Amino acid sequence: MTDLSSFPIATKWPAQHPELLQLYSLATPNGVKVSIVLEELGIPYEPHFVDITTNETWTPEFLSLNPNGKIPAIIDPDGPGGKPLGLFESGAILLYLAEKTGKLIPTDPAKRYETIQWVFFQMAAIGPMFGQLGFFHKFAGREYEDKRPLERYRAESQRLLGVLETRLEGREWIMGDEYTIADISMLGWVRNLIGFYGAGEIVEFDKLKNVPAWLERGLARPAVQRGLDIPKRPA
């Protein structure tokens, strides 16, 4: 039987099936990247709901796996050399799982790095900027009298959507005909921007052609539909 006793996080979120990959997450734009990629790859895993509203990511057990206190994180009991591997940062997890399985990332070296650059684009730009726009448009930030921060993140988010719009011209997916971790990294964020954040109008999403069509294709994938609802919230 697989032994996860060296991972303190497993004491707070006990594994019912320690032989499976353990996912510690929440269905946020960052969290669903990993649940979607696991569903797409067909890797058996055990999801654990981590409640960020009660600061569970700041408990000693969670911090033992991710000292940055953010979801998602994983433990792969069958890591390199057959030894358990704990990993955090959604981009790193996407790359690890794609390379481990040889799927959702091109085998051609040049295309592989091109894919990775778009994952990094999401991590460095799409996620932070869309998240800030969500704060200043939907949450407490909208009450700020100074509207310059909102306008800054609105303008930058709109510009980033323009980058995606240009990239997707004549392409079905970010890498052309091949659906990859680059697409998976961004689908949840674009969906959240126009859905949960309600920012579609202020970034003029309806004026775009390629990005909405790409989003619709991505959200129609059965694995994406499943991954968007994992981990399920406790009843």
Rank of each mutant, 00 (worst) to 15 (best):
V211I: 07
Q132I: 06
S185Q: 05
W118G: 05
R167K: 15
V211H: 06
A124C: 14
V211W: 06
G195A: 15
R167E: 09
G162H: 05
T115S: 02
D206N: 15
F205I: 07
S185Y: 08
E169G: 15
Q158W: 00
I174P: 02
F136I: 06
L150N: 03
L193Q: 11
L168Y: 04
F196W: 13
I126K: 03
L164N: 01
A155D: 15
A213R: 14
P128Y: 08
R167W: 02
G170N: 09
F121E: 10
F205R: 06
L168A: 07
F120I: 15
D183T: 11
L193I: 11
E204F: 01
F121D: 08
W118N: 06
M186E: 08
Y113R: 11
A140K: 14
F196Y: 15
F136M: 04
F139Q: 08
G200M: 12
M129K: 08
R112S: 11
V211Y: 07
R112E: 08
R154F: 04
T180C: 12
L160G: 01
F205L: 09
M129N: 09
V211A: 07
E172Y: 00
E145R: 06
E172M: 07
M129Q: 13
G176A: 10
L193D: 09
D146H: 11
K138N: 03
Q117S: 15
G170F: 09
Y144R: 10
N210M: 03
W118M: 04
R112P: 04
E156S: 05
Y113Q: 13
E156G: 04
E151I: 01
E169A: 15
T115V: 05
R167C: 03
Y144C: 01
E114N: 13
E151P: 01
E143N: 13
K207E: 14
R171M: 00
T166Y: 07
L168T: 04
W214V: 10
Y197M: 14
I126G: 05
E151F: 04
W189R: 07
D146R: 07
A124Y: 04
G198L: 10
D183W: 10
V211G: 05
I202Q: 12
D177G: 03
N210A: 14
R171W: 00
F136L: 06
I174D: 06
